[in-house]
Computed example of a mutant assay.
Amino acid sequence: MLQAAKSPAERIKLGRIGWSLISLGMLVAIWELASLIAASRYLPGPLEVVNVMIREAQTGELWTNISATLIRVAFSFVVAMFIGSAIGLSLGRYPGADRFFDSWLIFFLNLPALVIIVLCYIWFGLTEVAAITAVAINKIPNVAVTMREGARSLSKDLDEMAQVYRLGWWKTLRHVTIPQLAPYFAAAARSGLALVWKIVLVVEAFGRSDGVGHQLNIAFQLFDVPMILAYALAFIVVVQIIEMAILQPIMARANKWRR
């Protein structure tokens, strides 16, 4: 039987995967060559880092710390998306509120993350509440700005159509408003998660007794570069899996209604 020809989308997808593997292989080769030339314990080779990663996984420390980080990321992300979306939609729908609170958004967007983390730990103590609050506060302004633009872009013609056909508030929300806001929400979620990962690690390094950030801080104090790279690579792999398995399908579905 003749094999069916692959579609252009499938060929492009396979091509991207192939190029990604070649590119990563080249990066690993350069890393190995650099470690051989440097011959220093501060620049370990890929094999040494993988061995450390396997050892940490076998002892269970790797999974324990990654799990702790992921839980903090999840809670911070949900809080930031909920509050930030509510603020952004309110500002986008009410011009007066937008004019009044715009300077607030600018202030919090430019407030350094480190300052917020330190203040939260001072005010609330070295607790999980302080850690999650610090991460959420850093992310809420970004979500609010994105969702504000989404609220501003809502079609008045579609709203008038919904009123003419008497869809009611629930059907209007479900079939008219949410589909228009979905791409903005997905974009805020994707960019927000990328920011939350990074801030959670800083929060853990400053004031938590577990998590990837905590382990990186300990490894830094011991100048244990293989440990630093092992946890960094393991965390990157987990983030990429979440990106490809969850975020990319959500982005594709959110934009599916567009022509």
Score class of each variant (00 low, 15 high):
65 N>Q: 14
55 R>I: 09
59 T>R: 15
32 E>I: 02
56 E>C: 04
22 I>N: 04
67 S>G: 15
25 G>Y: 05
80 A>W: 11
66 I>F: 08
81 M>C: 07
28 V>Y: 02
74 A>H: 09
80 A>R: 08
21 L>G: 01
77 F>T: 15
62 L>G: 02
71 I>K: 15
21 L>C: 05
66 I>R: 09
73 V>D: 10
40 S>D: 10
23 S>N: 06
41 R>A: 12
77 F>A: 10
12 I>R: 00
18 G>P: 03
57 A>M: 12
58 Q>W: 13
29 A>R: 01
23 S>K: 04
12 I>H: 02
77 F>V: 15
21 L>A: 03
49 V>G: 01
32 E>Y: 05
31 W>H: 01
28 V>F: 00
79 V>A: 09
61 E>T: 11
65 N>L: 15
52 V>Y: 04
18 G>C: 03
70 L>D: 11
7 S>V: 06
59 T>V: 13
25 G>R: 09
39 A>H: 08
25 G>P: 05
28 V>R: 03
35 S>I: 00
21 L>S: 02
71 I>A: 13
61 E>G: 04
42 Y>C: 07
28 V>E: 00
20 S>Q: 06
5 A>C: 07
24 L>E: 07
54 I>F: 10
49 V>M: 06
37 I>F: 03
36 L>Y: 07
33 L>A: 11
20 S>N: 06
50 V>H: 01
18 G>K: 05
15 G>L: 05
44 P>N: 05
46 P>R: 04
64 T>C: 09
12 I>E: 03
2 L>I: 12
16 R>K: 13
52 V>Q: 07
34 A>M: 03
18 G>H: 01
45 G>A: 06
45 G>W: 07
14 L>R: 00
22 I>H: 01
7 S>F: 04
9 A>P: 02
39 A>V: 06
